[in-house]
Design a protein around this nucleic acid. Structure first.
Lengths: 348, 348
DNA sequence: TTGAAAGCGCTAACAC
DNA sequence: GTGTTAGCGCTTTCAA
């Protein structure tokens, strides 16, 4: 049975002929309509698998004017955060029967425009913009034409898009306070270079520090949200006269970079340097890293995004909803009280 | 400008009317045909963006009988190997203008059948099966209907599918020989539970060991290809009377699990235990891990897969091609000579 | 219940 | 060069 079938592809027409009924009857059977007699239904069903018939999605989507799928544009699949979030999205989409078409912004930067254009041209039922990204004319156009939800951020203005994100402000405060309570004072921040989430986390770090009377201890280094760049920024933070005793990193990936920097300097984590990440990425729970971090149920963020999108597909005129998943602290192995000498010059 | 446009979507017809030409002329312009006068072309182009016209992909795909996209079914996106491989695939696909639709087998196991069915029904131009997976009736059907390439494996029989994979046999031998040359004798293998690649690596380990006169030292533990399971299997390997001085893991992810197991037992890597992985996954080069591993240019495996697929789309009757990317050793920080006592009971 | 017929938006012969 | 016409495979009135 070689691939190039000798017979032309069976269509609804050939099925009808084979079953001795009309096209429309076949269509009704395909859609599980109740108003078809049992005899005919069987005849059609039999014809279908005798012929190996498969409906043609393009034809259906053309005629029904909906492809039954949404497009998902992801920032960077190398970051496990996205994989987890996709899992949630997928789960939330399932009841609606919507499929998803995935594209990665970073796989190839020149590839994201064609991808979005394809989404538009397919007249997809919805669009998911997952993770920090800068806007562009194409994104704006796509978001204007397709019901849209932004997940993890609201980096640019999209009047009719919903948002499913996390409590960046609260999470960052939890991180700083945790370190403070352990006794740290020289708490530095490894910040993200772009994106509203990074910005919010940074501001929250600043205010927390100030409110704790540590305004003078504020130290910030910005990095791209990659491990490599987190490493570099952490180096800059550590290679100074009076290095911090603790670093709050904008996300887990950057935090791992910081871990490398510490190790390279033979700084023991957590006894000589405390580190805390953000996102509770799957890898952060790996025994080998065991990162203290901020959790906010990413899976739920994904599920919520799906629900918002489904709602918006049903009624695109809805006012934009903003949902933030609450943050909580996950204490693991990378935070501890600072070396005694560092905080308490000696006496009480 | 709210989303629900008051005017119906512009079509090729409205564009034609607006520009004062016929439908077919518009179609020709859209396809960049040279046989259109400059004046008309401009008129059409103007009409297009005045109206904000976008071609309808379903209609086009119905009439052209090709959607200009391939489906990619991936085993597990949590493994960074896939992300890298996708990058290659994407790169290789680019010149052809083919888009890609991505699905993850593990995101949700119940979701892979609908995904494949969607691929079939969309009459996609091709199918990519990326990474170890067990077959199913749906996979068989999809592969029968769509030009197919398997990447990284040939886990089941698909008569008309090409393969782009890696030299598992050679790579495994390199790993064992590297450890041998460092002086290791008690070399254990952390094997994969399923998949032909795992099987081949295991067999090569066995033969290498035997050929090196180490048949008696053969120790194998099987694990699922995840970090968690790699950890568990490594524990079983280490918690015995006479533990191995080196472990060759079936892939990097499992190797990281082994690293955790070593650390948990306060075994220093590499001075007390050597570890070597497989795949040269991006994370393995992370400073924090710095895994010795086997490389085979995954990117190239992806590119090659794209090329094979493009060829097969052009001529589906081609005999199945099998390509294996050559393997090489990447020595980093997790391998070293064994502790002296272990190999040389004491004297020379 | 079932069938006939008219589109969905686009491409592709084929004439002019 | 440009317009006309006939489909692509399916859904969906509307009659029968």
């Amino acid at each position: 049975m070689p691939l190039p079938s000798p017979t032309p592809e069976p269509t609804i027409r050939s099925v009808a002929a084979h079953a001795g009924v009309s096209k429309s009857l076949v269509s009704l059977v395909l859609q599980g309509s109740p108003k078809v007699s049992e005899v005919r239904r069987q005849a059609v069903l039999d014809a279908i698998d005798e012929l190996g018939y498969r409906p043609n999605a393009s034809a259906r989507s053309l005629s029904q004017r909906t492809p039954g799928a949404v497009g998902v544009l992801v920032n960077d699949l190398r970051n496990p955060w996205f994989v987890r979030c996709l899992e949630g999205l997928n789960k939330g989409l399932r009841p609606s029967g919507l499929g998803m078409l995935l594209g990665d912004r970073r796989l190839d930067d020149t590839e994201t425009e064609p991808m979005l254009n394809r989404f538009i041209d397919m007249r997809l039922d919805g669009l998911v913009l997952m993770g920090t990204m800068t806007t562009s004319a194409t994104i704006q156009e796509a978001a204007q034409r397709l019901p849209t939800v932004m997940v993890g951020h609201r980096d640019f203005h999209l009047p009719h898009a919903d948002m499913s994100a996390q409590d960046d402000e609260g999470g960052a405060r939890l991180a700083v306070e945790h370190l403070y309570e352990l006794g740290h004072r020289r708490i530095a921040h490894l910040s993200g270079e772009e994106g509203q989430s990074s910005e919010t986390r940074l501001q929250a770090y600043r205010s927390s520090m100030t409110e704790l009377g540590l305004a003078d201890e504020i130290r910030v280094e910005a990095c791209d949200l990659t491990e490599e760049d987190g490493y570099a920024a952490a180096c800059r933070l550590l290679d100074v006269e009076r290095p911090p005793t603790a670093i709050f990193a904008v996300n887990d990936v950057a935090c791992i970079g910081a871990l490398s920097a510490a190790r390279e300097r033979s700084l023991d984590v957590p006894t000589q340097l405390s580190l805390i990440g953000f996102d509770n990425t799957p890898i952060s729970g790996s025994r080998h890293l065991w990162l203290t971090t901020i959790d906010y149920d990413v899976l739920q963020v994904g599920v919520r995004a799906a629900k918002l999108l489904i709602r918006r597909i049903a009624d695109p005129t809805l006012p934009a909803a903003n949902y933030r998943s609450p943050a909580s602290l996950v204490v693991r192995g990378t935070t501890a009280p600072p070396p005694a000498a560092a905080t308490r010059p000696s006496p009480t």
